[in-house]
Design a protein around this nucleic acid. Sequence first.
DNA 1: GCTGCCATTAAGTCTATACAATATTCTGGA
DNA 2: TCCAGAATATTGTATAGACTTAATGGCAGC
Lengths: 249, 249
Amino acid sequence: MHGKAPSSRSDSLHARIRADIEARILSGKWPPGHRIPPETALMQTWGCSRMTVNKAVAALAVEGLVERNRRAGTVVAQPRMHAAILRIPDIRAEIVQRGLRYEYRLLDDERRSACCVHLGAEGHHLGSSRFLRCLHLADGRPLVLEERHIFLDAVPEIELADLTSEPPGTWLLGHVPWTEAEHRISAVSAEGVAAKELGLTSGAPCLYLERRTWRGTETVTIAKQTIRGDAFDLVARFDPSGRALISGA
Amino acid sequence: MHGKAPSSRSDSLHARIRADIEARILSGKWPPGHRIPPETALMQTWGCSRMTVNKAVAALAVEGLVERNRRAGTVVAQPRMHAAILRIPDIRAEIVQRGLRYEYRLLDDERRSACCVHLGAEGHHLGSSRFLRCLHLADGRPLVLEERHIFLDAVPEIELADLTSEPPGTWLLGHVPWTEAEHRISAVSAEGVAAKELGLTSGAPCLYLERRTWRGTETVTIAKQTIRGDAFDLVARFDPSGRALISGA
DNA sequence: GCTGCCATTAAGTCTATACAATATTCTGGA
DNA sequence: TCCAGAATATTGTATAGACTTAATGGCAGC
């Protein structure tokens, strides 16, 4: 339909088998709960070895489209609308992609000792950090106000990093591997200094995005982004398996 | 760390190999761009067949941790922060899970002919629909105001469905398979009737979530949810592969 | 130096087979 | 009837081998 490109390109046999079964499930011909033929049967219908159909069906299983059990067989999974893939990309990349001129402005850059940092809900103690306030602009208009802690324990290199021209998020992405992250999205009113810096009247609605990133058990960074509500949407496009489709902003 | 359960449970050989390589990548021992040994080498280090290491590394490839190319070999992928899995669950389930009393109130229920529906950006013509306005309450407090079109072309059964006690989203989830969906999240001010129904003063910030669902090329439903900004966050927790972790609201 | 060809290497696919693990079903006995 | 254990079906894992496909690196010729 609109720019969609499913698993059409399928050269290999197992890819074709997989696409075929997938089509039957998505079309509703094999509804949720339907038991699909055992591997031995598929192997005969397709005239191939069991390893090949196994690869196909196993892939559908990791996708979440089917559930497999020894002896009990394979059944089509119940559809779930529980998770959506949300593109929350690098701001710079996002702005540039839309054909706008990106500009970055560092407002504040200081060292914070442990006490200043509000602790996580888990009560972990976070060490000292480099604290940054910066503004991301699109075509000269302020779009995102970012406040970010980067923790020295996890990223000692940050101490010397030059963040006057490169946004901290971009720097981190290129330098620090991460193992886990959490986003929290809410709606807030722009208030006080933040409103002024974003060029908004007090009370204007903004998206508030708090992103926390871990590397193993160590907190790498906490970023709080206030995004002009009138100028930015978060868009997610996906299919039942939870895999992202093309998400053209 | 907090409720996290990585790929620790590894019984089979390929799972162990995979976890081992994954650990080296995440620990930074094998940084992005590093070329990992070819399958023939891994096969010797682990004393197993090539199919087995293939399965392990292929899994890492679908996860996005490595990139593979014929002849060029396998290299550790650059970390990308492009997509996050966002839990946008059934509202009822979400409220109940938090231990609050869920209440549902149907405000409006009418038939709309095609002309009333704002067309999609693609210019597709959407047929007539059943249009619903309803309120989701947690412990008696209004939390989400929902306006939803369900299109009769795609879901003729909806005509007769009883939606006075069951929210339309829940009904749909149980009755209609879908193949594609899109979410759009923005921040708005509560205004007029909506503000009143949510018990907010005019101008209070709200999350605005627009969800569109397709089945094949047909639009199944368009839902517009206005969520009290002070009472609800959208939370996403994930790892670099983009697979969702446990997301305890 | 540049171009085009070719050999090499590494991943991708597929087969045939074997055995393991496990849930269901069957069967026999109390 | 009901329970224990055996038979069985189905997926899971692993092996060895063969062939395919694609990118790289080097070599020859211009």
